[in-house]
Amino acid sequence: MPEILTAPLVVEFPFTRSLGPVQSAFLTGLRERTVLGVTASDGRVVVPPAEYDPVTAEEIRELVEVGTAGTVTTWAWNPAPRRGQPLDTPFAWVLVRLDGADTALLHALDAPGPDAVRTGMRVRIRWAAERTGAITDIACFEPDESTGDDGRTREPVAHDGQFPDLLTGITAPARLDYTYSPGAAQSRYIQALADRRTLGERCPACRKVYVPPRGACPTCGVATSTQVEVGPRGTVTTFCIVNIKARNLDIDVPYVYAHIALDGADLALHARIGGIPYDQVRMGLRVEPVWADGAFPHSPEDMGAAPIPDHYRPTGEPDADYDSYKELI
């Protein structure tokens, strides 16, 4: 068994979400410490407001203001809060039916412990100090032992959904952390690259040599297991000249991005061509790898970097005949 490689993979993006009128009014309302619901086709007040009726699918747009206190309909005690959740000390997840609403809203309840929480208990919104127009403008709920009116409405009151500086979109950053493993075949391949050897794998059925190997011969559906060293030289089968900078790549344009069939391989891999003016690259050009200096495989900052050649350069050999590589294009 080869050593199995792993490396961190972070999938992170600040998604920009446009809201549409109902969600826009609701989230702007939260910024203004006002909770809006929407009247469904059957007269129920849905909070948080849906854009479309959960029963009839009709578009619903009749907004109402509801209370900022309400009743817990179910709850769950979270002893170990996780990244991104509303509170970083143990809390209860709650569904809360706000006064004037007929459905419940999901959020967190700040309570000293599970013994302090029960279904049917009264809670009220604790507003975030800084509010931007987001569900997190409700910092959380807190127990509300006052029996009196909290100053906000208990019966739904019609609302026009208008606020100054109505929000039309939100930014919703999301980050997920993965530990990526490429599996056995690619681990073998990458480790060989660190020794500046290119190891393909041969299919036992069709005898084709795959570079990089991916664990299966995709046409035969069987495991490739015999390693075959290919290259280092190869032939440019086709290419394009890149004139715009690719995202996150520090390569001066123009440069040539080519498909290269390494000698002994049955399909082409992709790489940059250097060591020759870009406008002189041609199909059939014979090339060889120029290896990058790199700290692969085990320095932390390079975890996950493939020790691939930095680019390929001409060998000086005569060009390959078109017929010799046309099946590899």
Binding site: Q23, L27, A76, I135
Partner: peptide, 25 residues
Amino acid sequence: RQLDPYYLAPLWPDSVALAALQAQA
């Protein structure tokens, strides 16, 4: 990430939490 991206996903309520709300009900 499979929850309503406007009202739910920003609170990161995890799958066990949601099932627990159901269990308590």
